[in-house]
């Protein structure tokens, strides 16, 4: 598969992406009586890598869950602008949102532990739009993650944490995403693996023209690959800006460097 693999490297997954974006406008959301997000607005433009920063319990995951339809906002709206059309996402079900090509790599990976690596990857291609691309995407994933090829007939649950996170990413690629949402990918991984993981995410983004929204606590690694970011503090956007501003911001220093 050597010759084929090199041709894959140069191959671009071209899509008319200009102007495509996800917009979150002024949402309030929470669980039961507890409100977690207060008037949060943000946007994710096609081609960007955007990171949501913040320590535990500030609402990063809740914001991602709102976009996926797993948590219903009590106020505000979420919409996707796709090829000049506006599609309302507020109130839509998870499976419909997935069908629009917005794919979540959930926190804690949520693999299918008893299914093999290959079966896990095929499950990624469950949505209709991904099925015609199965062969090509599978080849891409095995080439990008050689470890998965070695282990393709092994149950996913028997792999190490790092390998499982790679499989979770590869499974998301199998679903041929327009927008990739990654929730806390570095949780439970050794520092050296975290660095490797973020390099992989960057590599995938460049090779597949992906658009990535990532919730992350590991500020240092995340800002290395992000174009822009938001800092969420107690359910509000405390700061929004591009990478260089983000790295310099006093809130970051306060939360991460203890200054």
């Amino acid at each position: 598969m050597g010759a084929r693999a090199t041709s894959l490297k140069t191959l671009k997954w071209k899509r008319p992406t200009l102007g495509n974006r996800i917009v979150v406008e002024n949402i309030d959301a929470g669980y039961g009586a507890v409100n977690v997000l207060h008037g949060v607005s943000m946007e994710l433009n096609a081609g960007e890598t955007v990171v949501l920063l913040g320590t535990n319990g500030n609402g990063k995951s809740t914001l991602i869950k709102c976009i996926m339809g797993l948590v219903r906002p009590s106020r505000g709206r979420i919409a996707m602008e796709l090829d000049g059309e506006t599609i309302e996402l507020t109130g839509k079900r998870l499976e419909d949102i997935v069908n629009y090509g917005i794919i979540l790599v959930p926190e804690g990976r949520h693999l299918f532990p008893k299914l093999t690596v290959r079966e896990n990857l095929l499950m990624g291609a469950f949505r209709m739009a991904a099925r015609p691309h199965i062969a090509r995407n599978l080849e891409f994933c095995f080439e990008a993650f050689p470890r998965l090829l070695e282990r393709k007939n092994q149950p996913a649950g028997s792999m190490s944490g790092g390998e499982q996170q790679m499989l979770a990413l590869a499974r998301a690629i199998m679903s041929h995403p327009r927008f990739l949402l990654v929730d806390e990918p570095s949780v439970g991984l050794a520092p050296i693996l975290v660095a490797h993981l973020f390099e992989k995410i960057k590599e995938l983004k460049e090779r597949r023209d992906l658009t990535i929204l990532m919730a992350e606590q590991n500020f240092n690694q995340a800002t290395k690959i992000a174009d822009r970011g938001y800092i969420i503090v107690e359910g509000k956007i405390a700061f929004a800006g591009d990478r260089s501003l983000l790295r310099e911001h006093h809130l970051v220093k306060k939360y991460y460097l203890g200054a």
């Binding site: 499976e95 693999l111 499950m123 990624g124 949505r127």
Partner: peptide
């Protein structure tokens, strides 16, 4: 195997 993961992959659970 995992209902949440199934839903995240677009399975109409």
């Amino acid at each position: 195997d995992d209902e949440v993961a199934a839903a995240c992959n677009g399975v109409p659970v």
